[in-house]
Design a protein around this nucleic acid. Structure first.
Length: 329
DNA sequence: AGCGGTCAAGTTGAT
DNA sequence: ATCAACTTGACCGCT
């Protein structure tokens, strides 16, 4: 119960690394050497995933987002491959399934977030094909590790958001059930607000990953409280939201750039008592999560017993409670 | 061992 | 027209 905090992809201080390669390097090798190298990286990454999950469990971080590069070059137009066809491919799959069993046994949720190149409503058919492939790949790994979220953005607007969202919906129809059942959509910082995508979420039965930082950058007239409630209603499983803070504060210029840490002032008060996953998009990674979790615990301990959370203007009140917690790292 | 150039991919908005 | 920003800087060849 309470909030499940999520770490995104990598670590800052903890020596757990995921590896990748470049297409230009692999293309210089002959095919079998290339596949051997990729197989090696996949195996290393499966082990790193296991270590990452163990670290998360030990530190009470109960959600981990898996990097899109966990299987390097998986859907590259020339170098793309089936894992079954890699040297030691069965073993790679079993390593992932083992990590999935571990995650399940420790109640660690896992998730995916395909990169900016995945655009389901692109006006270029080949981009849509590549995007579908990428989502299918991540859904396959998701199945191995028991992940229940593959989260994408709405894509481009192309001057007509309504048409673009309709194109998005047609592309979703082309996904397998395995991929579609995990698909979620997130409001973004430039184009699609929560209000833009909520109708689509309802129509398609796709949950909204509500990113409150993006909502603050890309407003639509509804409040954080309203967006939170509407987003909660789209979920048929534990809701997932995103939090981050602007690198130079809200008075700075680059409001959509992420800070190293989360400013507790940016944490929506109306999330405090929800049972949700909050993925923490902060450059200091696990260090930022540990700090945020300590602050959250302090607020819950203090506010939770006095009922202050119900008070409309609790913000200044709980800032004062955090003097000790903020500096403890 | 450390450094700099490079890396598959899309779209938008700031400069 | 170029560039940074977005989910995450890491890899590789050279010194």
């Amino acid at each position: 119960m309470g909030i499940r905090f999520g770490l995104c992809c990598i670590f800052r201080d903890e020596p757990i690394k995921f590896r990748t390669t470049t297409a230009s390097y692999v293309l210089k090798m002959d095919r079998s050497d290339g596949l051997l190298k990729i197989s090696d990286l996949c195996k290393t990454n499966a082990s790193s995933l296991q270590e990452a999950l163990q670290y998360c469990h030990k530190n009470d971080i109960n959600n981990f987002r898996v990097s899109s590069n966990i299987l390097p070059l998986k859907t590259h137009p020339v170098l793309g491959y089936n894992v079954e066809d890699l040297p030691d491919g069965e073993n790679i799959i079993n390593l992932f399934k083992g990590a999935g069993e571990y995650a399940k046994s420790k109640n660690i949720r896992t998730s995916f977030h395909p990169s900016q190149f995945v655009v389901l409503n692109s006006q270029k058919p080949q981009v849509v094909v590549q995007s579908l492939q990428e989502i299918e790949y991540q859904a396959e790994v998701a199945e191995w590790i028991n992940a229940d979220v593959v989260n994408v953005h709405g894509g481009g607007a192309y001057g007509d958001k309504i048409k673009a969202l309709s194109d998005f919906s047609h592309a979703v129809d082309r996904l397998s059930e395995r991929a579609r059942s995990k698909l979620t959509i997130e409001n973004d910082d430039k184009t699609y607000t929560p209000s833009d995508v909520l109708p689509l979420c309802k129509d398609l039965g796709i949950p909204l990953v509500y990113d409150v930082h993006h909502h603050r950058c890309n407003k639509d007239g509804i409040s954080i409280e309203q967006a939170t409630q509407a987003a909660l209603a789209t979920w048929n499983r534990e809701p997932m939201f995103h939090i981050s803070s602007p690198i130079e504060g809200w008075s700075g210029k680059k409001q959509n750039s992420h800070h190293d840490f989360i400013n507790i002032e940016d944490f929506p008060e109306c999330w405090l008592d929800l049972n949700i996953t909050v993925e923490v998009e902060a450059k200091a990674k696990e260090v930022a999560i540990l700090q945020l979790m300590a602050q959250y615990a302090t607020i819950k301990r203090t506010v939770g017993t006095t009922g202050l959370a119900a008070c409309p203007d609790v913000r200044p009140a709980f800032s004062g409670l955090l003097v000790g917690a903020e500096t403890h790292l």
